[in-house]
Simulated scan of single mutants.
Amino acid sequence: MSSGVATAIPLLLFAAAARRIPLSTVGLLQYLTPSMQLAIGVFVYGEPMPAARLVGFAIVWVALAVFTVDLLRHARAGSRRGRSR
């Protein structure tokens, strides 16, 4: 029973926190955990990081940057259109 509580409490806290911030921010924050796990694996535990894996990791982050820039650009354009009406 304690394992159910240990699982449920973090999920409830995450759900409560996710309601307070925009979903786009939650989506970007979801990428931080695997990145931290990668950094710990490579720098703390000395896991090998072949060039192909590093390139794949970089491609994911470039795509996230493109997504974020596009999101911000559309948000600013929408707010300008709303003010001009």
Rank of each mutant, 00 (worst) to 15 (best):
L28T: 15
P22D: 00
A6E: 10
S2M: 14
A8V: 00
A52P: 11
Q30F: 15
S35K: 10
I59G: 05
A39F: 05
V62E: 04
R53W: 14
T68N: 12
P50T: 12
G41P: 02
A75R: 05
R53P: 12
I9K: 05
V60C: 07
S35V: 13
S35A: 14
L13C: 05
R20G: 02
V42Q: 02
V55T: 06
S2F: 15
L11N: 02
G78I: 03
L11F: 03
V66G: 10
T33P: 08
A6P: 04
A17W: 00
A6Y: 11
V5N: 09
A39V: 05
R83D: 01
R76N: 03
V60M: 06
R19A: 07
A52K: 12
V42M: 04
L64F: 09
A63H: 03
F14T: 02
P22G: 03
A65I: 15
R19V: 07
F57T: 10
L23F: 10
F57Q: 09
S3A: 11
P22Q: 01
T33G: 10
R81E: 00
S3N: 12
S2P: 13
V60K: 09
R80A: 06
R83V: 03
T25L: 09
R19P: 05
T7S: 11
A52Q: 13
V60Y: 06
V42A: 02
G82H: 15
F14N: 03
L38C: 05
A15E: 01
A75T: 04
R81N: 03
L29M: 10
A75V: 08
P34L: 02
M49A: 15
S35R: 10
L13H: 07
S84D: 01
S84Y: 04
V69W: 15
A17Y: 04
P50R: 11
A58W: 01
S35P: 09
A18D: 04
S24H: 12
S84V: 04
R20I: 01
A17E: 04
L12M: 06
A65N: 14
L28E: 15
L13G: 05
P34F: 01
A6T: 13
Y45F: 06
Y45P: 01
G78L: 06
R85D: 04
L29F: 14
S2D: 14
A18Y: 09
A52L: 12
T25C: 08
L23W: 12
V44N: 01
G27Q: 15
A18L: 02
L54A: 14
A65Y: 15
Y31E: 11
R76Q: 03
A51H: 12
P22L: 00
R73K: 13
F57M: 08
H74I: 09
G4D: 13
R85W: 06
A58V: 05
F14W: 08
A51Q: 13
A52G: 08
A15F: 02
S24M: 10
S84M: 04
A77K: 05
G4L: 14
I59M: 10
G82E: 14
A15D: 01
A63S: 06
V5E: 09
